[in-house]
Design a protein around this nucleic acid. Structure first.
Lengths: 209, 209
DNA sequence: GTCTATACGTTGATAGAC
DNA sequence: GTCTATCAACGTATAGAC
């Protein structure tokens, strides 16, 4: 008997928690941690403020959850690098994947940038190991390519940092791009073209083509 | 008679205003606009909180002044691009200049990133024209290089965006670099080497060398 | 599980003595 | 021009009715 009721409640909980996390991601991105108020988040989620505290207890907890989800999604993009053996495909697909993330999840990118900018006080606790491991593994791959003469001799860490910086900039500094684009946000077609240009610059940088 | 007194007061004012702006740049960088309190800024400047309001009236005013100074300094770095006629020197010196700025003025870079990240609500009012003009002029120069066959055909805007993104990332995401560097900040020597790597990647990207 | 009303702490800003 | 004391506004969090 209680099973179906419990299920119903759990569904409600899951739905509302997702509503709140989605809303929080956007509000944290737009206003920063301190600037974001639980009141604004609740309004964005179309729920009473008290419910936000009911589900997540504190604003800091909610923020931590938002960061966790972003890191998971960020890691997923790495697959597009790993599943292609040759440098041209791997780099091309990775850059495209990162550019798509900036396009589809601009708030996520901004929340992350904001967090690292201010010292990664919260995220630092849990993303340290993942980041180091990720870079170590891919550094090996890039160094192999260099030894096999497939790409020019470049510092792998600097290369990845450049790819992250450039692709994430399209989300984090979108306002600056908008200003340069006569105040208008990029159309899908414009964004596609910019993506191709970034791919070309990255391939050039390692001497492919 | 009052001349010398007035001079003295003006000197005091200038000294204190600079103290406060320096402190504010750091506190805004570390905590964001909302997270930065006038109390913390005043303590950082070793002055009573009331003096901050005496000199700048409001926190928003002070923030605006901080942004103005940053934009001025940012524009100055462009000289290292303009004073060299050939692409290799111009790009090399510009990248080095931008990397130096990230090293010497990390707080300035972070305040700017934070401002643009959250929609450039304040800076947008005054940096729109300067940015558009800056990019238009340099786009011409890059296109000339392309037509003269001095560099590969790349989109100038994407190129500049990549240079800004990468060089500013060394300030804005310094925490992430620190984590990858076993928790230690870069030494001057390490930073020099990274700078050389970035220069190489940028030159490769446009097909020089 | 939902929501209104409220307590409590923090912060921007100022009044007024020096 | 400097600084202490103070206030009003706001925001987090919760108590308690439904």
């Amino acid at each position: 008997m209680t099973q179906s009721i419990k299920d119903q409640k759990e569904v409600t909980r899951e739905v509302n928690e997702k509503l709140i996390i989605d809303a929080a991601e956007q509000i944290f991105a737009l206003y920063g941690f301190k600037g974001a108020t639980t009141d604004r988040i609740s309004k964005q989620a179309s729920l009473p403020k008290a419910n936000v505290h009911y589900y997540f207890k504190t604003k800091s907890n909610l923020y931590r959850e938002v960061l966790h989800r972003i890191l998971d999604d960020w890691m997923e993009a790495a697959e597009d690098f790993d599943t292609h053996p040759d440098p041209k495909s791997a780099l091309t697909n990775y850059v495209i994947s990162k550019m798509k993330f900036s396009r589809n999840r601009p708030y996520a990118s901004k929340v992350w940038a904001n967090e690292v900018l201010h010292g990664a006080k919260i995220a630092g606790e849990f993303f340290q190991n993942e980041l180091q491991g990720w870079v170590q593994d891919r550094t090996k791959i890039v160094n192999d390519w260099i030894q096999q003469g497939k790409i020019k001799a470049v510092d792998p860490e600097t290369l990845f940092f450049m790819i992250w910086a450039t692709t994430q900039h399209y989300a984090d500094f979108s306002k600056q791009l908008e200003i340069l684009n006569d105040g208008k946000a990029f159309t899908d077609e414009q964004y596609q073209q910019k993506t191709q240009q970034v791919v070309r610059l990255v391939l050039n940088a390692v001497g492919i083509e």
